[in-house]
Design a protein around this nucleic acid. Sequence first.
DNA 1: AGCTTTTTTAAACAAGTGTTTAAAACAGTT
DNA 2: AACTGTTTTAAACACTTGTTTAAAAAAGCT
Lengths: 205, 205
Amino acid sequence: MCKNKSTEETIRDAARRVFIAKGFAGCSSREIAKEAGMNVALVNYYFRSKNQLFQLIFHAAMEDFFVSMLEVFAAPMDLEEKLKIFISNEYDFFAKHPEIPRFIIGELTREGCEFDEKAAIKERIEQTGIFQEALQAQEAGRMRKIDFFHIMILIMSNCQYPFMARPLIQQIHEIPTEAYQEKLALHKELVIDMVMSYLFPKNKN
Amino acid sequence: MCKNKSTEETIRDAARRVFIAKGFAGCSSREIAKEAGMNVALVNYYFRSKNQLFQLIFHAAMEDFFVSMLEVFAAPMDLEEKLKIFISNEYDFFAKHPEIPRFIIGELTREGCEFDEKAAIKERIEQTGIFQEALQAQEAGRMRKIDFFHIMILIMSNCQYPFMARPLIQQIHEIPTEAYQEKLALHKELVIDMVMSYLFPKNKN
DNA sequence: AGCTTTTTTAAACAAGTGTTTAAAACAGTT
DNA sequence: AACTGTTTTAAACACTTGTTTAAAAAAGCT
């Protein structure tokens, strides 16, 4: 009844690395087993199938993806600071896990990857009250009147894309990975500055 | 000696659709053949191997990817308008070809996809003189002093990510594809407004 | 017409795929 | 010790993969 936790976790961690690096279609069950130092049959013994193991990894990645977002939204601060910290946290999260956005978007794109309601992200965001908070700030003239939908895209674009597109942009600018990462650390300040000053324009009069 | 152009192009077009939709690892030679309404052997008769056919498609996509960028940079306008039109063109291009960025970044990410110098994008951008142009504008105080590296990332982030992330953001906001596309059309104005007013701050005094 | 070259097809190849089976190794209990 | 259930392994399953072969069909040419 009590499964060997060590073996199961070893396989799961190996699967996480391989799936995230190569995607579902880009790797085989045997590759995951080898990465874990195990037999192929053992992978299916613990997780029944490649697809089932993948769903596990994918949904966990999705959860991680949304966690920092939600906890910042629910924090007790004024909206302006909240969004600033949100951007900062998001940027830091993707600096630490740069492969996550490409993985999630890539797998959501291919057909047959059913996620659907399951997570109910929208509802969980709504429950933080951030939508009304933004509306109030906009009514009061403290914030530019933009639908929160667009605000989220602006922020996600600037926090995720720079990490997703590393191989492309490295190719364009012909710089090594370390130099790229250093530049992205500086880029963070630009993003915060640009987005915040757009959302909360300070009338200089 | 004169190959049947029709057949070859039919296969190439089918390969383009399938590769871009599913990626190199996500499809088979037989799937491409079927999409083209041909035999598997015929694919290899014209293109020798799946990998060779892929390289063809990939490099062509890369070229398309850079074309509009370069021609705007070389256009005879003042820098501010040039960048504005650049953003607009980029946004329109990805609205028309929303799968391209994910395809390129995804394939550049997996190992074994050698592209390297081949294109020399950096040099081609340099030849348009946009770098010096930006430096001049910055010296003259007409433009915020930001390395062009960061400017490009800002623009690419906001022009590409919204289209790449469609399945993810649709999931979050629970809206159908048509509604999403309509919203993205509006989003364009925000992007132009935000980026341009950040790069070229108008002192309101 | 017949002959040559190009295009297309069906079939085969070895290697790799996800998954299952059945037996072995292990651990725990009495 | 023998019997328990759990964990691990090697081997096999049927099927798909990329690629090649060899023959058929079509097209070109004199």
